[in-house]
């Protein structure tokens, strides 16, 4: 396999690494806010994978210009899915943070171990 062809997979490797870095934060960190940060990294990795799939060689953003023939466009569908997912992502993240804030008010800590000990 040629080197350039291998580099065609580079985006997917970055996706894999970022995804697992986020997952590591979720399973290993005990601080609840750090867990949520890990979750949002995980989420961003999925966004990157979708957007990587939309790219077409020699293509441009799917905005059709009149008078230009034989344009190649990248795929609009993954873009639409991710566009809405980003906004939904921040709303659900805010919901998670709100719960963390309430946990902190009730237990005085956001470390998972200390919360479990307090119960």
């Amino acid at each position: 396999m040629k080197l350039l062809e291998l580099l065609g997979y580079f985006n997917y490797w970055v996706f894999a690494i970022i995804l697992t870095v986020g997952l590591y934060a979720v399973i290993r960190k005990t601080n609840l806010i750090k867990k949520l940060i890990g979750l949002s990294i995980f989420q961003s990795a999925v966004f990157l994978m979708y957007i990587t799939m939309d790219k077409v060689e020699g293509g441009t953003a799917p905005i059709i210009q009149t008078g230009v023939e034989n344009q190649i466009f990248s795929n609009p569908l993954p873009q639409v899915l991710i566009l809405t997912a980003i906004v939904v992502g921040v709303s659900t993240l805010a919901l998670g943070l709100a719960i963390v804030v309430r946990i902190n008010e009730s237990y005085g800590t956001i470390e998972e171990r200390e919360i479990l000990d307090a119960d």
């Binding site: 990587t52 939309d54 441009t60 873009q79 991710i82 566009l83 921040v90 943070l97």
Partner: peptide, 28 residues
């Protein structure tokens, strides 16, 4: 990767709003 609309959203939401919400949660 040719996703201009998504880039605009990510820049406004991810770099702007998410950071502020995280910071206000941290302050608490």
């Amino acid at each position: 990767l040719d996703a201009a609309d998504v880039a605009l959203t990510e820049a406004a939401v991810g770099a702007g709003v998410t950071t502020v919400i995280f910071l206000s949660a941290l302050a608490l």
